[in-house]
Computed example of a mutant assay.
Amino acid sequence: MEYLSDSVYIHLGATDRALRRYREFLHPPGRRPLYPQESHCSCTWCSFDDVRHARDVLEEVQERLPAQARSELARLVKPLDAVFLRRTLPDPFAHRRQWRTEFWWYRRLADRSEWG
């Protein structure tokens, strides 16, 4: 699927990289909140520095997969999403931002604002 994709975000190894990055971000033990950080570079690999980009890739891959593979990936992602929601804080100003997204993971507080 990755090899045949015409998506900018989906390329060979992107699903594995996204899943590893998502797990890595959520790995630190403890109860302290986690804050996604914006990537300083938008190149194919550096963009994964922002865990939200990794989650974007996982979402897009799920949308493109056949039903059985989609449900298998969803089984891996769903518990990670629960941890992400538990370990990050809601952004109380998300509804006011000029740059908005339909994805819930962008409506959580990040280390840097969208303005840099």
Rank of each mutant, 00 (worst) to 15 (best):
V51M: 08
F84M: 15
D6Y: 04
R108T: 13
R52D: 01
W115T: 15
W99C: 04
R96D: 11
E24M: 11
L26N: 03
W104Q: 00
Q62K: 12
D56G: 00
H11I: 10
W104T: 00
H95Q: 14
R97Y: 11
T15E: 03
L19W: 02
S5L: 14
R64E: 10
S71D: 09
A18T: 07
G116H: 10
H11Q: 11
Q98W: 00
I10D: 01
L26Q: 04
W104I: 09
E59R: 11
S47A: 14
E102R: 15
P33E: 03
T44D: 12
A82C: 04
S113M: 04
H11R: 13
R86I: 01
R100G: 12
L65A: 00
M1C: 07
H95Y: 10
C43N: 10
D49V: 08
D81I: 01
E114R: 10
W105T: 01
L19P: 10
H95G: 09
H27L: 14
D6R: 12
M1R: 09
F103H: 15
A14C: 14
K78Y: 07
L76K: 15
P92Y: 10
Q68C: 02
Q68G: 00
Y9H: 09
P28K: 01
L76A: 08
V51G: 05
L76I: 00
S71K: 03
Y106R: 10
D6A: 12
H27T: 14
F93Q: 15
Y35I: 12
T101Q: 07
D49F: 08
R20D: 14
Q37V: 05
L58M: 06
A18Y: 04
